[in-house]
Each structure stands twice: as C-alpha cells, then as structure tokens.
Write a protein that binds this DNA or RNA. Sequence first.
RNA 1: GCCGCUGUAGCUCAGUUGGUUAGAGCACCAGAUUGUGGAUCUGGGGGUCCCCCGUUCGAGCCGGGGCAGCGGUACCA
Length: 511
Amino acid sequence: MSDKKPSKTQVKARLPKGMRDVEAQELRALKHMLDTISEVYERYGFEPLDTPAFEYTDALGKFLPDTDRPNEGVFSFQDEDEQWVSMRYDLTAPLARYVAQNFDATPKPFRRYQTGYVYRNEKPGPGRFRQFMQFDADTVGTANPAADAEMCMLAADTLEALGIPRGGYIIKVSNRKLLDGVMDAIGISGVENATRRLTVLRAIDKLDKFGWDEVELLLGSGRKDESGDFTKGAELTPLQVRKIREYLSWESIALFRSSVQTHRQERLERDIEIAENLLGESDLIEAGLRELFDIEVLVRSAGYGHNRICIDSSVVRGLEYYTGPVFEAELTFRATDESGQAVRFGSVGGGGRYDGLVSRFRSQPVPATGFSIGVSRLYAALSHLGKIGAAKAAGPVVVLVMDKARVGDYQCMAKQLRDAGIRAEMYVGDAGMKAQMKYADKRGSPAVIIQGEDERAKGEVTIKDLLEGSRLSGEISDHAEWKEARPAQFSVSEGDLVAAVQKLLAEQAKA
RNA sequence: GCCGCUGUAGCUCAGUUGGUUAGAGCACCAGAUUGUGGAUCUGGGGGUCCCCCGUUCGAGCCGGGGCAGCGGUACCA
C-alpha cells in the first residue's frame, strides 16, 4: 500500500449536481429560523405533521412516469412489487393523501404545518437545487375566505418574526378567478384554447421580471432573448392584449379600497359593475371580486394595512392547480452583493386555494388553502440582510493530552466542564502538543486546559485564553519572545478548574 | 431543451511563435522550537493540463468531436 498514485479503483469524492452540503454554522442558523417559523404557526393553532420523503406516484398527482422517461421532473423508481414510487416534489400533495386517508378521524377544518426537503429532477441553477426545503401551512376542509385571509396574516407575521421590518416585505393577493374571467371575456376559454391560456399565464407571471414591454411580446408574436433563444407567444390580437393590460394596470383595484374601508356592501355591488364594464362580463370576475373583498375586510379588521398585505392583480402562481385566491410573499428590500450589484430577493413564498387536490382521492369536494415558504431562498435573503445570527458558535474548551498515560484524568476534566454546562472535549487525536494547539485554534476554542508534569506536580492546571492570546500575538513579532511570554495563560489549583473556566468565559462574553 | 462563456494542484490563477522534468500565491503537512495556536525561515506531499481522435519529429497550447461547470433563457407542481 505504499504506492502513492491514486489507484483506478479510487472513487472521486463529489456531490451530485443540484445537491449541497450544509455545514455547522448554516445548520445552526437554519434550525433557529425553522424554530421561529414553527412558533408563529403554533400560535395560529396549526398542528405539526411529518410525512415520508416518497409516496406512490399516483398519489402525487399528474406527474406520472411513463416507460420512456420515468424520471422526468420527479425522481421515481419501481418498488419490489413494480409499483411506481416518487420522491415528493412539494408538501401539499402528501398532505392531500394524508387527509384523504385519515378523513373521518381528522377534525375539519384540518390545520397542519410541515417542513422538510422536497425533490425535483430539473436543471439546477443559481439558488435552485434538486433538493430543497419548504415550510408549509395549510387549512383543509373549508372554502371560507377567512382561511385565505389567515394565510396572508400568517405570512406577514412570520416574516416579521424573522426580523424583516414592516415595509421590507409585501404579501400580494389576487384571485385566479379574475384572470380566468378576463381570459373568458376575451374569448380564449374552452378546451381548444387551453395551451394558449397557459402561455398567457406564463407571460403575466413574468411581469415583474421583464416589465410590460416584454410581456406584451409574449402575449403577441413571441420574444427573443439576448442569448438568441426564441419563446413562442400567445398570438393574441392587439385588442385582447389591451384587455389584459387594462386588467394588470388596474391600480391595485383601487376602487376596491373604498368599498372595503367603508365596509359597505352596496359599494361593492357598484364596483363589481364597474369592473365588469372594464374587463368584460363574467361570473368568475364577480365571484373573484367577492372573495377578495372578504379577504380585504378580514385582513383590515385585524389591523394589517396595505403596507403589509395588498391586492395585486399580476400574481399568478402555479399554473393548473390553484382555483381561487393566490398569495405571494415578496421581499422588497434592496441590497447589493459582493460586487456591488443590486440584488432583488423577490418571492420567498406563496400559496393559494386549491380546491381540487384532495377530491382526487374522494368523491366529495374538499376545499383547501395553504401557504408555502421557500426556506433556502428565505434563508439566503435573511443572511444577506444580516438577520441570521452571524456569530459563529463558540468552539469547545479543549483539554490537551500531555501525557497519553493519563487520558483518564484529562477525560475527567472534560466531564467536569460538561457537567457544568460548558462545551468541552478531550483531544481525541494522536498528535503532539503543537498540533493540539492548532486543532483548538481551528475549532475556534475559547480556551485550552493544559496539565503536564509541571502542573501535575503542583496540583494545578493551566488555562490558556486563546482569544486573548490571539490578540496579543499581533504585538509580538519575535518567535522566541512569543514562546517565552506564553501570553494569556494562568494556573489554578485542580479543584478550581471549573470555576476558573466559567469566569474566563464570562469575561470573554463581555468583551 | 436552446444560446453563450469557461475547463491547468484542495482554492485563485500564470504558462512565450508548438520545444527538455508544467509553475506561482494561498491552503495543507513537517522541521527550526523534543511543553504552546500567531509571525518568520526551510523543507515536503499533492497534477489524467476535462476526455477522445487528429495534425506534427514534438501538443497544456493548433483542428475536430464529446463531457463537465458556470451564466442566461425555456419549463417549473
């Protein structure tokens, strides 16, 4: 085995694409963030639930693997009995399965929150992974807009609990019934226009990314991007495009605010009439407006202003799945990255009403609404804003092994420190003292405990303050002097070890 | 999927018109200092120059074809 050349059988250590490791500092901060979110959700009365990472493919929905491409979009494999199984791609489909399976025993409305990794077999990009974390809250079993309104308030409260100040975020609300109604009104309803409607939705969804001019191209003949890729448009007529634009530029449904502020039902009726004159007559538009009105009234009564939750007609969200109100949580912060470029964080979560999901498993309708946070994205934004506990967790106090025959004594010192609640360890490697010091340094230890022959003879231990020592090292350039000075260390009698370390840590914490 | 850019040490990169044994900085390990993390000095380990084919006496460099990474775009429950 003395051959130094890597053998052909040696495997290359590498990560599958779109996957990543999460290291100590981030993991601690992430846990803290998840705890904060959980607290808010618990306070709203949601119950925790966990479901497995994979499900039978048919339970997850329409992404059925076919024989040619069984892994398109979702990671799938066949179980021993040849049934297809897929990794979950969100937390909502498993929830629907759970509720359907435990329907009679579950209180309705059923309110649960859940976090975990989900998996998508797609091309990874900047900030996009094939395994990522979501944090969801859903209310299943009621069509009451109060449940939707609550989702918006929950989202706002959560972002604030995470340290995002009021004004640094906005919860946008719209209603898919409005868009569907508008498309109805411009004559692109019906099965034969299904793909065209999808194209229109996709185009509108890109409004905040590209602006209206580009969206107009996507609604019409199509758009060519800088890299030369051409995206086919929806081929709408100029008249149809103009109607869409009227809908989108509909000043946050300003007229609506007046109805809501006065809580006057008769004004709502009048406003609905105005809207239908503008956009076209449609039952869907009327129903959508009524739902938004209810949400507005509830949210405002609870004291959430337009700076926190507001109606925005450009919100689209998922293409096929939402059936009513849709929400999007957006960070409005401006910040700059390392190279001084402006970064926009954009959407960190979203959700809406999906009345069709559970009913796939049962004959009766089961309306539901929910909100989902993109944990990784939100984490990235928070850490950019300095809202993540930047302080690295202090490393352990390291008890050096000066004499291998006495590991029992050293282990005992470490245990005494632990029993006093101090993070501590005995060095468990095989290297000499110098390497042990380096190890402690790299671990970020606040102090090391030294007991060699000299201390032992006097019944003492030496405590070396690594933080102070590091500071002093800047003032000493000569190594002989540095070695001679042995800065920032002192000895105490064995019995005082714990008390002395506690005192030192307290002083360090103050500095 | 489409378009563009980039592939040389763990990381960041240099490498002349194609010419001997492919370099630097950082990082890592060791010694100077057998009981002290820093600094300094000395030494050391570490390479499929992304892969294959071609041109050539000779390719890290030139040509062709792949692959991978990054960026944009498309798709996105």
